[in-house]
């Protein structure tokens, strides 16, 4: 199997191995995506990958490999970074998300994001969840908004713990509860896709397990892309795993294939903890 050093392997890197594209309908699709930061520093190179409906795609790789960059392209979070240029095509249900007539704010309600550090607004638990629906006018009256908040908190597994303290500040919750509140806030605006950037790296193992279980439950309603540094987490929760290396997408395969018999040697080296 050994073909050369990692540097040689990278130089000879061709197309992404495995199954980056899926048969049938995909929810989101990236085609030949390049991203440049200031002074034309290229962060990711020619990435094509699909996100299927109701699947969890885990994105793994060493720091600086471009996984978060790609994740942030999916809902145009990179628009806020000056000097960032995205080339290629990214579609949501077949519609180009970088097209001029797409409103990024609306896009982000369709493609929600959960960050590494729980970041509830300095408002009550209720207002945290109601913020998005109010902004997008998703509820016609107070009763509808109440229902929406309850439904979102139930889906994020936080309802039982918070139903008697909805007016208390969201920042008073524990780290794991705050992260579930952020997930409730994300799903309150009825997205199709949820992006998660290391959603449990600031949490203890029990809170992590709760979030992972929540992700598994949410899968039936949403498409989830998760960037994680924990390979065990990728192995536990995802349907497919994508391995990134220095801005290239090396391999995408079913998760059990990646962790038992990866196709590319760079993937193998990373997940077995060998010198890169």
């Amino acid at each position: 199997m050994r073909k050369g050093t990692d540097v040689e392997l990278l130089q000879n890197l061709g197309d992404t191995v495995g199954k980056p594209l899926i048969d049938g309908d995909s929810r989101m699709s990236c085609s030949k995506v390049d991203v440049f930061y200031n002074n034309n520093n290229q962060a990711i190179f020619d990435i094509s990958v699909d996100l299927g409906k109701n699947e969890i795609l885990a994105m793994i790789g060493p720091s600086g490999c471009g996984k978060s960059t790609l994740l942030r392209c999916l809902n145009r979070m990179n628009d806020t970074i000056e000097g960032c240029k995205v080339e290629g095509e990214i579609t949501l249900d077949g519609i180009d998300v970088y097209s001029k007539n797409i409103d990024p704010v609306l896009l982000r309600s369709n493609v929600g994001m959960v960050f590494q550090k729980p970041n509830p607004f300095p408002k009550s638990i209720y207002d945290n969840v109601a913020y998005g629906p109010r902004l997008h006018g998703l509820a016609r009256n107070g009763a509808e908004l109440d229902d929406l908040v309850e439904e979102s908190l139930i889906k994020s597994g936080l309802w039982k713990e918070t139903k008697d303290r909805l007016n208390k500040p969201g920042t008073g919750l524990s780290g794991g509860q705050q992260q579930r509140l952020c997930i409730a806030r994300t799903i309150a605006v009825k997205p199709e896709v949820i992006l998660m950037d290391e959603p449990t790296s600031a949490l203890d193992p029990i809170a992590t397990a709760t979030i992972e279980e929540l992700m598994y439950e949410l899968k039936s309603s949403y498409t989830i892309a998760v960037v994680t540094h924990s390979m065990q987490q990728a192995a536990r929760i995802s349907d497919r795993t994508a391995y990134f290396h220095l801005g290239r997408l090396v391999e995408v395969n079913e998760t059990n294939k990646v962790f038992t018999n990866p196709e590319h040697e760079l993937t193998e080296n990373y997940i077995t903890g060998r010198f890169g």
Binding site: M1, G273, F275
Partner: peptide, 12 residues
């Protein structure tokens, strides 16, 4: 079979 060393020497 990968014969490259692990980062952890103890594991090797």
């Amino acid at each position: 079979m990968n014969t490259q060393d692990h980062i952890s020497k103890e594991y090797n």
